[in-house]
Computed example of a mutant assay.
Amino acid sequence: GYVSPSEDLVESLTRLVLPAGAMGFALTAYIMRMTRSSMLEVLSEEYINLARAKGMSQRVIVLRHALKNAVIPVITVIAFQFSYAFGGVVVLEEVFFWPGIGRLTLTAIQSRDIPLIQGCIVVVALIYMFSNFAADLLYAYFDPRIRYGGDD
């Protein structure tokens, strides 16, 4: 069930554990696998071998050089998973009896409320667009080779 945080904050947080865990475990596993494979790929590059030959510590190599280059595909996965979560949240909201956009969409479909269905779809589409836009901005932040704009 759902308890509003304004009614009882502790009970609200207690009832949040199972839905958050159910949503988070599946998404986290995929992101961890992608991070691992991306890091393994980057750690076998020539510039990493050069940094090792220069005597840099493994910590500096991983945090300063490898992670910045390995995070680009991970950002893409996180953006898609964030958008995907809003599609999969319908089941969680029904199982755990939580109010949300998934439950609202399902109720609108069952009652054939076309304007509400359209509004819910537009909101989910906007979330999808903004998560991909944020991913594009993060690409430029983490990888200095990526720049957006005019001729510099």
Rank of each mutant, 00 (worst) to 15 (best):
V89T: 03
R147I: 14
P5S: 02
V62N: 01
Q81L: 07
E93T: 10
A29G: 10
E46C: 06
E11V: 05
A26I: 03
D143A: 05
E11G: 02
T35E: 07
Y148S: 14
I75Q: 15
L106D: 10
L63E: 11
V124E: 02
Y148Q: 08
K68N: 05
M23Q: 02
S44K: 12
P115C: 01
A51Q: 13
L104T: 11
K68S: 08
A70D: 03
L13R: 04
L50E: 05
V91K: 13
T76A: 07
G102N: 03
T14K: 14
I146M: 06
L92Y: 07
G149C: 12
A20R: 14
F130L: 15
F96Q: 07
K68M: 09
T76M: 13
I61K: 13
S6F: 06
L13M: 05
Q81S: 15
M32N: 01
G150R: 11
V89F: 01
I72C: 07
G1A: 11
M39F: 04
I121Q: 06
V17L: 11
M56N: 15
F25L: 15
I31D: 00
I48A: 10
Y139C: 12
Y84R: 12
P99H: 06
L138M: 14
G88S: 07
T14C: 03
E46F: 02
I78K: 00
G100S: 02
T76W: 11
A135T: 09
A140T: 15
D143H: 09
I75M: 11
V123S: 06
L126S: 13
I117M: 14
L137K: 08
I109R: 08
W98I: 10
M56H: 13
E45G: 04
S44A: 10
Y2G: 05
G1Q: 12
L18R: 05
L16F: 08
D8W: 00
T14L: 08
P19T: 15
C120M: 07
A51E: 12
Q58K: 02
I109K: 10
G150S: 13
I117H: 13
S6K: 13
I48N: 07
L138R: 09
F142T: 01
C120S: 08
R52G: 04
L63C: 11
G149H: 13
A66S: 07
L126V: 15
V122R: 09
K54N: 02
R36C: 04
T76F: 08
F97S: 05
A20I: 06
I127A: 15
N69Y: 03
T107F: 14
P73N: 09
L116A: 12
R59Q: 08
L126H: 01
V89N: 03
E45S: 07
L40H: 00
A135I: 14
L18N: 03
G100Y: 14
S37I: 03
A134E: 10
L9G: 01
E41R: 06
